[in-house]
């Protein structure tokens, strides 16, 4: 089944005000930067964005924040972004902070047809407020519900016309779970190959989870913390 979309404009078609989006990436690593830039252009607003981080002030989801297009963020870590912190502390932006592992599992559950699950993470903290607690093997756990989204936008290294995806290194992060949890999943890839161009043994996300795929025009792939050693 051919999932190829000609360009980023067509790829994000149908994303409307007040929708819920999932966006893959950890920090600036493995984020769908072409799609984010396009959403800035469309000016769509009132978005609820589920993403581990919120980018930095001038890149990634930070661009949508600067533009006041985001109503609510569901994330685990939002440091390194002054505009985010400002909007959150002033109350302009709704923020739901949840443990990183719970965020990943909630997305996975959403895509896997599991409505909720128990986890020990967050027990006895603010995260557990208003959540059911149950003890298993003598240890208290809290009930966390699945997450889904109107659109999931992921970024992969390689993809084929069937929507099969291969990720590179730690740019994989949240992308595979979010691909599963979107009603419509958009994949932007660095290299789009014909069906048969990827080894079926090495596919990370099977094409069934992807509805639209396109090759991104350019990837800046900005580095957040450039750390090196000397020879």
């Amino acid at each position: 089944m051919n999932k190829v979309i000609n360009n980023v404009t067509d790829a994000v078609h149908g994303i409307e005000d007040n929708m819920t989006l999932m966006l893959g990436g950890f920090g600036l690593c493995g984020i769908p930067e072409n799609s984010i830039a396009e959403l800035v252009k469309t000016g769509v607003k009132g978005l609820t964005c589920i993403s581990n981080n919120a980018g930095v002030d001038d890149f990634g989801l930070g661009l949508l924040l600067q533009n006041k297009q985001i109503k609510k963020m569901i994330s685990s870590y939002v440091g390194e972004n002054d505009e985010f912190e400002r909007q959150m502390l002033s109350g302009e932006l709704e923020v739901d902070l949840i443990p990183q592992g719970s965020l990943a599992e909630r997305c996975r559950a959403g895509g896997a047809g599991i409505p909720a699950f128990f986890t020990p993470a967050g027990y006895g903290t603010e995260v557990a407020e208003d959540k059911e607690v149950r003890t298993f093997n003598g240890k208290p756990h809290i009930l966390e519900s699945a997450l889904t989204a109107d659109f999931a936008i992921v970024k992969a290294w390689k993809g084929d016309t069937e929507g099969n995806l291969v990720f590179k290194a730690t740019a994989r992060n949240f992308n595979p779970m979010m691909a599963m949890a979107g009603k419509i999943t958009i994949a932007e890839v660095e290299e789009l190959v014909p069906a048969g161009g990827l080894n079926p043994n090495e596919i990370h996300t099977p094409g069934i989870f992807v509805q639209r795929i396109f090759q991104g025009e350019k990837f800046e792939k900005r580095i957040e913390q450039r750390t090196t050693r000397t020879k």
Partner: peptide, 14 residues
């Protein structure tokens, strides 16, 4: 200061 818990809650709980 609100940076978020990242993976810390999962790590310490388990």
């Amino acid at each position: 200061m609100v940076k978020g818990m990242g993976g810390a809650m999962d790590l310490v709980a388990s």
